[in-house]
């Protein structure tokens, strides 16, 4: 039995038939062909598959594609605008927040959500906020620094655009 699903990923509409058991991460990778979202486990532990779905970060290995029918999805490929990197991407690069880079797309998507909820997190809040994302390479130190740096950049940008501090889209 196959189901027809349709969703918007990074602003583009996708529509496919899927098996009911197809996980969102496989849909994104195999049907939509966006392979920046990775798979690192089968127990919802690692966060490599983290994407944004209707404004919330989700582990896309934990969502069925049929559950995402009609959803708005953002993946790592949807963050940069042309060659203009998202402040988080820029900060991960500047602060050496990645080594092998396998965890990085999920880590950045989790960090994005974290900063949207809490634009000025403390170090401890950042550490707790990305606890669901495993990195085996960096010891997290430069990831934490990158998120701090991005938070500052985003605050500065938001300050330029509007006065109210909460105005992060």
């Amino acid at each position: 039995m196959r189901h027809r699903v349709a969703m918007t990923i990074n602003g583009t509409q996708y529509e496919h038939e899927v098996e009911p058991r197809t996980l969102l991460v496989y849909y994104i990778r195999e049907q939509a062909g966006l392979t920046g979202t990775h798979i690192g486990c089968d127990t919802s532990s690692c966060g490599a598959c983290t994407v944004e779905m209707d404004g919330h970060s989700v582990k896309s290995c934990t969502v069925f594609a049929v559950q995402a029918d009609g959803a708005q999805i953002t993946t790592i490929e949807g963050l940069a605008v042309g060659s203009q990197l998202h402040p988080l991407q820029q900060a991960f690069w500047d602060e050496h927040g990645l080594q092998c880079g396998y965890c990085t797309p999920g880590m950045i998507m989790a960090a994005k959500q974290l900063l949207e909820r809490n634009p000025k997190p403390t170090e401890q809040e950042i550490r707790l906020g990305i606890e669901g994302n495993l990195c085996r390479c960096t010891g997290y130190q430069n990831i934490v620094k990158a998120i701090e740096t991005a938070a500052r950049t985003m605050a500065a940008q938001a300050g330029k655009e509007v006065k109210a501090p909460a105005a992060v889209s």
Partner: peptide, 19 residues
Amino acid sequence: IKRREDPELITGTGGFVDD
């Protein structure tokens, strides 16, 4: 010096075997 490997990895355009 910042790593030249990174731009692809941070934009999801790197190429691991499964990608």
